[in-house]
Design a binder for these strands. Structure first.
Lengths: 251, 251
DNA sequence: ACCTGAACACCGTTCAAGT
DNA sequence: ACCTGAACACCGTTCAAGT
């Protein structure tokens, strides 16, 4: 029957899910048992490097153990499963997003644009980490810290609390969807965009008149411009719900 | 070096990529060799049923072969790899989206909203198929047919061709991102939304004041409303670029 | 000529045997 | 007490041997 209903009462929480992260009391550092031979951070950093280099599909625990000069069994002294390692890896990517200077921005529009662009940048630096990242709401320690910072900055600039949360969610979903489709591992060549455009242009115009017409018009739009277009739609849409005036900047 | 750069010149195209679909001349039917014992459509339909029931991770070729009363080697007479099967499976899900009555809608806004809701509905019916779906731009026969229909309906209602293509892309990315985060297999319990909300609410208010405040306010917003909110942002944002007037309905 | 059992080289995970 | 080699039950894929 229902096979893929994780976090069912009684069952062990799925790694990366809210319930799973909630069971992990130590947000940072603090090895779990004694003093292990391998540093937890080092394992995750190595795993991320391997995923970057070889792709999430080719990444295996044997490969990771080899890179660490260790055996696969040793990894299980630090993590309960491969999925746990991937959950930490995803949170590590989110940790690369630097939102420390959000206070310097005058308007909530700028805050949302900065958040979107920097989140987008981190995902572009780790396209092979996108599939594991998409599979979960990012509620690890770094994901929570980013969410807190952005919501705080929005509230500070007079955005109503309900709107702030919805804006964060909507823009987050857009960034994830955009990156998945345009920079996922299946399309992760540097020239993915022109490739896709020329694919559309070469279709039979009789069978696909509208697609080929659009492709002929939209010849070589840089991806970053396409990204900005959708982002602007969301932000201008939000302006109908929220004040346009920037809050007085606190000292 | 560059490990995950598919569709490189000379290399075989990655299943599901534009280049791969372009090599598949027969959009529908027509078995490839003689008269095979297994129907291609039947294989894909069975594969989708198994993915629905057991999840994409548990789905294996042995499981598929068993369900078909056959052996794994037989599957390779119809498809070159598991990825090929998944690419067809994804296109089959897109084939469930019914856009045949788009002509009855008066405005381009309604066209985009209908497309988003029906695409969203198909993904919700197959949450376990979302991970393979996200990994690729959907350019299989069914994906192309949907794209053509929507673009045609938008052009018919006076939307400029460049804007139509960008609107389709932006809304498609939003739907994909929303579904991945809210209905992916990791969070695919029926009560995922309240679960996530209560997770936020139980966080330490000292460490995460903005998150807990937002969670307390946004108690139990139905997911469909959250979906509509982001969609409305995009559509109202688009209205600044396009005419508001519906085109005269053709007979 | 078409099909497929059985093998191949892997995989994540476990555990008994080592130190 | 801690670590880990070697095994376990799988996996996607191949191919020689069957009909």
């Amino acid at each position: 029957m229902a096979a893929a209903t994780p976090d069912a009462p009684g069952a062990a929480p799925v790694p990366g899910s809210p319930a799973w992260w909630a069971d992990r009391p130590e947000p940072r550092g603090a090895p779990r048992r004694g003093r292990p031979a391998l540093d937890t951070d080092h394992i995750i950093a190595t795993a991320l490097r391997l995923v970057d280099e070889h792709g999430a599909q080719a990444f295996s625990l044997r490969m990771l153990a080899d890179a660490l000069g260790s055996g696969t069994a040793t990894l299980y002294r630090h993590f309960a499963s491969k999925d746990e390692i991937l959950a930490h890896l995803v949170d590590r990517v989110l940790g690369e997003v630097d939102l420390s200077d959000l206070d310097a921005l005058a308007t909530w529009q700028e805050v949302l644009a900065a958040m979107a662009h920097r989140f987008y940048g981190a995902l572009r630096r780790h396209p092979n980490a996108v599939p594991p990242l998409m599979a979960q709401v990012p509620v690890g320690p770094n994901g929570l810290a980013q969410r807190e910072r952005v919501l705080h900055a929005l509230l500070d600039r007079g955005v109503p609390v309900g709107l702030a949360a919805r804006a964060f969610t909507a823009i987050g979903h857009y960034v994830i969807g955009f990156t998945a489709q345009q920079h996922g591992p299946t399309v992760a060549s540097p020239d993915a965009a022109p490739q896709l455009a020329s694919f559309y242009r070469r279709l039979d115009p009789t069978a696909y008149p509208a697609i080929t017409r659009a492709a002929a018009t939209l010849t070589s739009v840089p991806l970053i411009e396409e990204f900005r277009f959708g982002l602007d739609l969301l932000i201008t849409g939000l302006e109908r719900h929220a004040p346009r005036t920037p809050a007085p900047a606190g000292p």
